[in-house]
């Protein structure tokens, strides 16, 4: 049994070594995001819970990017909350602490009902049955070559950085499940393979929330919403994102013709 090295002349040497340990993955790319506690502490010192409260839904909002570190226990949720408490009081940091609560919520479900992770917790509320959804992810989604420029942008960011803003995850998940009518499980595997923070509970249960198998209604969006929250980063013009155009009522009729009224 051979002890593996933990000191390398540079990052490229470390990456080369990890590739030798992961022969099937050796052709994949690597994120610029660094692992380790030092990187996490730098992000922790820079959190801005008050700005988070009013900007977190925008792709350029004051989100922390702490998720890969929290996911792997490099920082605990407790530490992040304690740090937020030192930076502001009740109302201003409420939203931030509530979002940390989502992770705690999903982890508690994971511990209590691990069998929920890969199975529909409830039926789809979309008017479709599970069998109406495709089992596998279409190749154009995996390759980031869909008919939507915004979705291609999100897929490319996911694949190169291993991170996506929460709202971008919601858009892309909704696109996969509702516009392309693909089972949420296929989307969840795609995300897990690329996200640095990929977590069976946060990822799969969020997918089920989008799909409506763990929510009272499906999550979907329209172009106006996409432009408002993602337009500063992603290409969101009408011509390259046509099928998101229209009101929520129009889109609901198109996407879910057999759904009972919302």
């Amino acid at each position: 049994m051979e002890k593996q090295p933990t000191q390398f002349p540079d990052r490229a040497a470390l990456v080369a070594h990890v590739k030798t340990l992961s022969p099937l993955r050796a052709d994949d790319g690597v994120s610029e995001t660094r692992g380790g506690r030092a990187a996490a502490e730098a992000l922790l010192a820079a959190i801005d819970p008050a700005a988070y409260g009013h900007s977190r839904n925008y792709l350029d909002g004051a989100v922390t990017r702490l998720s890969p570190y929290i996911r792997h226990g490099i920082v605990s949720l407790n530490e992040v909350r304690n740090q937020a408490l030192e930076m502001g009081d009740g109302k201003a940091i409420e939203k931030f602490i509530q979002e940390l609560g989502w992770r705690d919520f999903w982890q508690r479900i994971y511990a209590q009902n691990p069998d929920w992770l890969w199975h529909d917790i409830e039926d789809y509320k979309t008017g479709f049955a599970a069998d109406d959804y495709a089992d596998t992810l279409p190749q154009d989604i995996a390759a980031g070559e869909t008919d939507s420029a915004a979705m291609n942008y999100f897929i490319s960011v996911l694949k190169t950085s291993g991170y996506l803003h929460n709202h971008a995850r919601m858009y892309l998940a909704a696109y996969i499940v509702h516009w392309r009518r693909v089972k949420w499980q296929a989307g969840a595997v795609f995300f897990l393979a690329h996200l640095l923070d990929g977590d069976p509970a946060s990822n799969n249960l969020s997918f089920q929330w989008v799909a409506s198998t763990f929510a009272n209604k499906p999550y979907f969006f329209n172009l106006e919403n996409l432009q408002k929250f993602a337009g500063m980063e992603a290409p969101c013009d009408y011509h390259t994102n046509k099928f998101f155009g229209g009101s929520y009522d129009d889109l609901a009729l198109k996407l879910f013709p057999d759904m009972e009224a919302l």
């Binding site: 049994m1 051979e2 002890k3 593996q4 933990t6 000191q7 390398f8 990052r11 470390l14 990456v15 070594h17 990890v18 590739k19 340990l21 992961s22 022969p23 099937l24 993955r25 050796a26 994949d28 790319g29 690597v30 994120s31 995001t33 660094r34 692992g35 380790g36 506690r37 030092a38 890969p68 792997h72 490099i74 291993g162 595997v189 897990l192 393979a193 690329h194 996200l195 640095l196 990929g198 069976p200």
Partner: peptide, 30 residues
Amino acid sequence: DAYMTKMHFGLKRRVFIYESLCELAVDIYA
């Protein structure tokens, strides 16, 4: 490796974990 494959860990994640381990007093065995 087999466990990480089962968990769908790609190369990005594996490098992230390895880098994190290098900052800890831990011996890595494959």
